[in-house]
Design a binder for these strands. Structure first.
Lengths: 200, 200
DNA sequence: TGCCTAACGGAACACTATTCCCATTAAGGA
DNA sequence: TCCTTAATGGGAATAGTGTTCCGTTAGGCA
């Protein structure tokens, strides 16, 4: 997104990395409300003019952070069964959301996306990439005959994350391991029953 | 929450109503970012000092709005089957979230809750009330033998809303009727299979 | 190695959000 | 009906935040 720069050399790259790290820390600890560009610039050790010129608004900063985060998305696993794969996925999502810092970061990013269309587009792209990484689990399950052909793999993957995010965003206690197991189990059962088949 | 006032008579109540209405409109059209207390006061036809004195912050305004919204939560339905009941529920949630104004309002409220603990508590209370209204659908289904005894009714109700909210918050296109049907169907299938049983 | 220019950093500037002050209004009770 | 006082409303003062200017630094290239 911001990589087509005429001079993306050493200093520019270092500044971006430092600013995004400071942005990440600020979001994790103070949420979207605590994202002050002046403070971010100070924590990153760069002039605030630089932050204003290159990003301009808090939400643009979040959008760029999402681009970087997408580059670090973890790989899928292959346990041999859909339930096993999705339990691993659900566990990772649950631990991320339950962690005070990481969970706050994700909540703040979702909040930022509600305030700005570009950030919303970046968030969608971020989850599209994560879903694309895990969708093969479902496709493999189709190949093994675990779930019906025509199953919407992306929908199944999203069905695992959905209750965990919903829990994190609408309740004051974070989701636990039990919630993760339920999320995976419910998604698998529904997928097996054909609830995510495109024709149904 | 703000009802134990020494003099909650006519004027005070009218001011609160007008301010909350203006808050609702501002959130629906401009999101949390567009919630300017001065503008809210002007639109409500009250002095800005009043808004600052009684509420103080945008998130406090949202928290009070949630108290009022909880008082207007719609009733459950009784179609005679769990799937029928939850399809109605899912349809209402989906239409609410897909509506540009209403959907924006809910997204903004979720965003506000990520910024402030009191607002988060109000949001949780709001959904607790809505879940409590619909949980009897699941309990009735247990009574009819549709789903196993020991099923966590609240979890089933939340499982219907979760994918619709997740969709609204993480994607740029709103959830559609097909998503609502899938959400209800998946929740029912999972509940029938015992995925929401407390023991499992 | 040295030039050219993009990118950066510090400080002044402009603007908006918030609070303070005090006159005015209208609940609630005798 | 009148009195007491909580609550409101408008405007000025203040604080805090966002924006811009301009000199300095350091990539990129010959």
């Amino acid at each position: 997104m911001a990589d087509a720069q005429p001079r993306p050399g050493g200093r520019t790259a270092r500044v971006r990395e430092a600013v995004l790290r400071a942005t990440r820390d600020a979001l994790a600890s103070g949420g979207l409300h605590g994202l002050d560009l002046t403070a971010v610039a100070h924590d990153a050790g760069v002039g605030k003019t630089t932050v204003y010129r290159r990003w301009g608004t808090p939400t643009a900063l979040v959008a760029d952070l999402l681009v970087e985060m997408a580059d670090r998305a973890g790989d899928r696993v292959d346990t041999g069964s859909l339930l096993g794969d999705l339990e691993v996925n659900a566990g990772r999502v649950q631990r991320t959301l339950a962690d005070p810092e990481e969970g706050g970061l994700y909540a703040a990013i979702v909040a930022a996306a509600t305030c700005d269309a570009r950030t919303a587009a970046a968030l969608e792209a971020f989850y599209d990439r994560r879903v694309a990484v895990w969708a093969p689990c479902v496709e493999d399950a189709v190949g093994r005959g675990e779930v019906p052909a025509g199953t919407d793999a992306a929908a199944v993957v999203r069905a695992v994350s959905a209750p965990l995010y919903y829990h994190r965003l609408t309740r004051t206690t974070p989701p636990g391991e039990e919630d993760a197991r339920r999320a995976a189990a419910a998604a698998v059962v529904a997928a097996v029953a054909g609830a995510f088949a495109s024709g149904a």
